[in-house]
C-alpha cells in the first residue's frame, strides 16, 4: 500500500513538466528550464495590493488586454496580496512588470540588478498623504501648520497602513520624525499597522486608533463613495509632496521579447489616453489622467528616507 502511495505522491512531479513541454512544442518555442522566469512568451504583470482585490482584478484585466493588443505578446496578471511578496516575486524573476509604491519600488530595484523605472502617473511626482483623526480625540485640535504641530500626536493611539507602504507609512513616519515624534512616542509605545488604507480609515473612524495616515487618493475616493462618516473622522493634515507609485520592469525584457521591447512597453503605457474608451477606463481606475516617463533619480529621495528609517538596508 505504501509503495503505491509514495509512487502516486511523486507522479505529479513529472506531470506539469510533461504538460509544459507539450505546450512549448505546440507554440514552436524552444523549451528551456521549467522555471517560469525562463518563460519567453508570457509577460507577467502584477501590482502591490493597495486596493480591494475586485478592483485590482478589473483594472489589471483591462490593462492586460490593452497591452496584449498593443505589444502582440501574451500578458497575464498575477495577483499578490502582500507588499513584500511583490518585491520578492520580482527579485526572483516571477514577475516582469510591477506597479510598485515608492518604497517597494526602490527595494525591488536594489534587489534586482538591471531593473528599470518605466513610468509613473501624472500625480505621482508630487503625491500626498493625509493624517486623519477620530473626532472624539481631535475635536479641538490646533490646526497643523508645520512639522512641530505634529507633536499633538504624541501619546495617541496611532496606526499606519502596511509596513511597506510609502504613503501609509514611510513618508508619514518621516514627517512625524521631523516634528520630533518617534514611533515609541505613541500610546502603547508603538504604532499599529492596519495592513491597508481602507482598514486604517475604518479603525480610526471606529476609534480603535485615535489617528492614522492614509494615501490621499484612497481617502478622496472613500469620501466620494460615501464610506467615510464625516461626523466621526477628520482630515487633520495634508503632508508635503513626495514621489510615489511607479512601473518597474525587469532588465532582461529585450533579451526575452526582442530588441526594443522595453521601449515599446514604456510607450504603450505612456500613450494611454482618455479619448479612447477602453484606455479611459484604465486611467480612471488608476486615478490618473495619463502615465508619464519617470526618471529613476526622482526616487533617490525615497531611498534616502528609507535608509534613514531602516526600511532599506
Amino acid at each position: 500500500m505504501f509503495v503505491y502511495l509514495i509512487a502516486f505522491a511523486f507522479l505529479p512531479l513529472q506531470l506539469p513538466a510533461i504538460a509544459e513541454t507539450k505546450a512549448a512544442q505546440n507554440q514552436q518555442i524552444p523549451h528551456q528550464a521549467q522555471r517560469p522566469s525562463a518563460n519567453k512568451i508570457l509577460l507577467r504583470i502584477s501590482a502591490i495590493p493597495d486596493q480591494n482585490p475586485e478592483k485590482l482584478n478589473r483594472l489589471y484585466g483591462l490593462l492586460s488586454d490593452e497591452l496584449q493588443e498593443k505589444l502582440g505578446v501574451q500578458v497575464k496578471y498575477i495577483p499578490v496580496i502582500d507588499y513584500s511578496a511583490a518585491v520578492t516575486g520580482f527579485r526572483n524573476g516571477d514577475l516582469d512588470l510591477v506597479w510598485f509604491g515608492g518604497l517597494t519600488g526602490v527595494q525591488a530595484r536594489l534587489q534586482t540588478p538591471g531593473a528599470k523605472v518605466l513610468a509613473q502617473r501624472d500625480v505621482d511626482a508630487a503625491f500626498h498623504s493625509i493624517f486623519i483623526g477620530n473626532v472624539n480625540s481631535f475635536k479641538g485640535i490646533k490646526p497643523i501648520r508645520g512639522f512641530n504641530d505634529l507633536q499633538q500626536f504624541k501619546g495617541k493611539r496611532f496606526t499606519f497602513g502596511s509596513e511597506s507602504s510609502t504613503s501609509g507609512r514611510l513618508m508619514p513616519q518621516y514627517f512625524l520624525s521631523k516634528g520630533g515624534v518617534k514611533n515609541s512616542d505613541f500610546a502603547g509605545g508603538a504604532p499599529g499597522f492596519s495592513g491597508s488604507h481602507d482598514a486604517t480609515i475604518a479603525l480610526v473612524q471606529s476609534g480603535a486608533y485615535e489617528a492614522g495616515a492614509v494615501n490621499e487618493q484612497v481617502w478622496q475616493s472613500n469620501l466620494k463613495k460615501g464610506t467615510v462618516d464625516r461626523t466621526q473622522v477628520l482630515a487633520l493634515w495634508r503632508t508635503p509632496p513626495y514621489p510615489d507609485y511607479h512601473w518597474i520592469a525587469q532588465g532582461d525584457l529585450d533579451k526575452r521579447f526582442g530588441i526594443g521591447f522595453t521601449k515599446k512597453l514604456q510607450k504603450a503605457l505612456i500613450s494611454l489616453r482618455p479619448s479612447n474608451q477602453q484606455q479611459q477606463q484604465i486611467l480612471e481606475l488608476f486615478g490618473a489622467r495619463q502615465f508619464v516617463v519617470a526618471p529613476a533619480s526622482q526616487y533617490g529621495e525615497i531611498e534616502s528616507v528609507g535608509r534613514k528609517l531602516g526600511k532599506i538596508r
Binding site: N52, P53, S194, G195, S196, D198, A199
Partner: peptide
C-alpha cells in the same frame, strides 16, 4: 483578508 480589510 482583503475583503475584511476593505470592509466588504
Amino acid at each position: 483578508r482583503l475583503s475584511l480589510q476593505s470592509l466588504q
